[in-house]
Design a protein around this nucleic acid. Structure first.
Lengths: 316, 316
DNA sequence: TCAATTAGGACAAAATCCGTCCTAGTTATC
DNA sequence: GATAACTAGGACGGATTTTGTCCTAATTGA
């Protein structure tokens, strides 16, 4: 009758029966060190059991009084929306562990009335979403720490391996995260380059939270963030293309990136950067409208090659 | 989420939320070996927690009813997953009303401790998902009724306007719903055509739940559903293309539709239907691998035209 | 009989747990 | 203000536990 599991559960029982106990007291009762009590409390928190702590002279630990998920009444629409959201997250593989999603679903279903529960089940069982899936990899792991940094407005030190380059240490003030066609990006102020930059999370070898905090520009939100993200994408070649179409069509074809398009006399100017002209050419080739490549010449060549390849296939 | 202590209690929670689970299932969910699950079960029994086990072919573990853990909250990971899900739903415009999503979020935040609440906020504020958005329109409205029909296994009577054709009344047994590149589809058994068919929800003019019920084929799930959905897409022209690549690359480029690709000597055979060769040609032109068009000839022409247009642009 | 499940022994490698020693915050009281 | 009593949590190393793998046995339904 020993082992940490037993003692953690005992701690839970102690907190349940006595309303409130100090760390020293708990340590004595469990026969372990105070330090270990703190570790047990952490374990309970990790399990999702809400323990409140009071600091200071007369501090101590207690279970959140009478807390429970009230038989939450979701409406039909809300259940649908919620279930669709979870389904989407699962399909996109947004969270690093599918386990977390299943467990959220189970917990929510537990507090739903039977009627809604069956509806939630119906959504999960009969709806299929075809979405671009995230690449599996380490990127998801880093979401948590980065989110912490953003939340607390603290700088991070990262090791970043840019395209075909050796990893380099940088200090970055993380402003926001972006998910785009299967990949996660972080955008923020790069202390090395002294400007707003965007980093691919899967090229991020190491993250470390620094003590140093920063102030996020107040007007840094969605639109701005967004445009800058694409401008600031690591890439070697500056690209300029004029799209001969209207904003609406362009936005639809490109996935709502219309904010970075500058209207011109003969269309919309798209300025960006790229690493690979060939990839970009492939992407351009599926646009349902005309466009003109202003720069670079390499892109024209890449597009020409691609088109010639397509011609061969068509004539085969 | 690490350490045996936490995992043993997680097992407890799993048993509490799902009524009954097999050892294999538990092992998978906890990310440990089956043997270890047995050890955990033993640990729980030693703790005085009554776990009933059923041996034999369809055996499994259950928690004796009445055992209650203190109210659970979401863990950090779960909050992240949940928030990402809601964000994804919002971005995809999956639900017809954004109002439902906001209200779900508000309700959930209300029962979260401050720590988790701020994390949920951070997700909502600082993360941006770039996803293909659903076309706004009536399609979302019909999701609810159709889901009801699927849940209750009742046939529906629909008015469907196929591509460039007059609306026609059909009776359909709805099996499942599919969301793909911005559009909703319903697949099910069409009483008119006497086969599995897929319908675009935005071409659905009217839905009426019928009293008549049906039995969904038992093995109708994901994969099958899926393949059939694409085969059965309304379209006039049969298309056959051989993709010269491996399954993995194909799946990535096409968005996990690999299940409908048949391996052949020189690649993967893609059979489908289309209404518009030109659209298909545009889509084909961005594939990062070679392919051969077997049929129809119109598609070859369309691809040729498209390639010539691209050449002009490249030489400009 | 077969397939799928639970039950549990043995063992070596791997991971953990835990006390000890720190320093840093927080808060009520003197 | 200073102080005392508390929580918060990093680092470390040795003792301990845990865990995967490989076994064999029992149970049960088809």
């Amino acid at each position: 009758m020993s082992g940490p599991t037993v003692r953690v559960l005992s701690l839970l029982e102690l907190l349940q029966s006595h309303g409130r106990l100090s760390g020293t007291e708990l340590a004595a009762r469990l026969g372990v060190d105070k330090r270990t009590v703190r570790r047990y409390i952490q374990a309970l928190e990790q399990l999702g059991i809400p323990v409140t702590t009071e600091q200071g002279c007369d501090g101590g630990y207690m279970l959140v009084a009478g807390f429970k998920l009230p038989p939450m009444m979701f409406t039909n629409d809300e259940t649908l929306a919620l279930s669709l959201g979870l389904l989407a997250a699962k399909n996109l593989q947004l969270a690093d562990t599918q386990a977390a999603l299943s467990s959220v679903q189970a917990k929510l279903e537990r507090v739903m009335p039977a009627k809604l529960k069956s509806r939630a089940r119906a959504v999960a069982d009969s709806i299929k979403l075809m979405l671009p899936t995230a690449e599996t990899g380490a990127a998801g792991q880093q979401l948590g720490p980065l989110l912490d940094a953003i939340e607390q407005q603290r700088s991070v030190s990262i090791f970043y391996a840019a395209y075909q380059q050796a990893p380099e240490a940088r200090q970055v003030d993380p402003y926001g995260l972006l998910f785009r066609s299967g990949r996660w990006y972080m955008s923020g102020y790069c202390h090395l380059r002294k400007e707003l930059r965007t980093f691919r999370l899967d090229r991020l070898l190491h993250i470390e939270l620094l003590q140093q905090s920063f102030n996020r520009p107040t007007q840094f939100n969605s639109a701005e963030h967004f445009t800058q993200s694409l401008y600031g994408m690591p890439g070697n070649l500056d690209v300029q293309i004029v799209l001969h179409t209207d904003k609406h069509t362009a936005a639809q074809a490109m996935g709502e990136t219309a904010s970075m398009l500058k209207p011109q006399a003969d269309g919309l100017l798209l300025s960006t950067r790229t690493d690979s002209c060939y990839c970009l050419a492939q992407w351009l080739s599926q646009l349902p409208f005309d466009f003109s490549i202003i720069a670079p010449t390499e892109l024209k060549l890449a597009l020409q090659q691609h088109a010639e390849r397509l011609l061969q296939i068509a004539r085969h």
